[in-house]
Amino acid sequence: MRKFFTQRKLNIIFSVLALALMWIFWIIAYYIAGNPLIVPSFTDTVKSLWQYLGDGQYWLAVLNSFARTLLAFTVSFALASACVAFSLAGKWAKALLKPAVVLIRTLPTMAVILLILRATHYNRTLSPVIVTFLVLFPMIYSQISSAVEGISRDITQMADVYSVGKRDRLFKIYLPGVTPSILAQTGANISLGLKIMISSEVLANTADGLGGMMQYSNLASEIANLSALTLTAVFLGLAVELAFSQLKRVTFKWSEKEGCGD
């Protein structure tokens, strides 16, 4: 009995149990609310989702929202990497960057959307991308900065003693040293970016994105549709996080211990 229930199987069983509990809570909430305009039924939501799956506009909206998220993430990552590289020049460089990073981090997101909408002459596609960038950039900058600082001082000292060249240091020590932790956080970052993107699209009323579809469903009181679109966003975020966690597991076999002996 014990052998059958391995840790992996137990994890799956508990995850399924948790999902079942969530489903039960949804049904209970539906009956307590007693109003499908507040809490739609699970059945209606699934029906809506099923209808969406056959709708080309839906898939275009999913693709657009996801593509914009990836764009915002890519720009955030590239700029954050460049800033971290610059900050390695010395303490003065880090001090120079700090106010800008803090400012960007503390900007109120919703207010920024409205300001950027005005600044971009109500470009409803660009403003969500900019807002998502403003949320992701300071976070990714901190993550990369911490990862670089986390590279073992013992290893950098060894590299100093043995006069390891700059190219070898960058490609064989620093980049591989920071990549696992950055990869681990990338899934969560993109998932968060998607959430911010959709929120921004709602506010900016971006017609060809998931946020725009949600806004329309809300205004038309099509709550089952709204619920189905919300589930879409959840599944998308989960899929991204799962994909990156699997990627890390496959890629970094040097972090997994095997049996050894002397």
């Binding site: 013992d154 290893i155 000292q157 060894m158 064989k172 020590i173 591989p176 040293g177 970094f252 040097w254 972090s255």
Partner: peptide, 8 residues
């Protein structure tokens, strides 16, 4: 301690 680069 050996101080070997773990990813090599």
């Amino acid at each position: 301690q050996p101080r070997l680069v773990p990813n090599l």
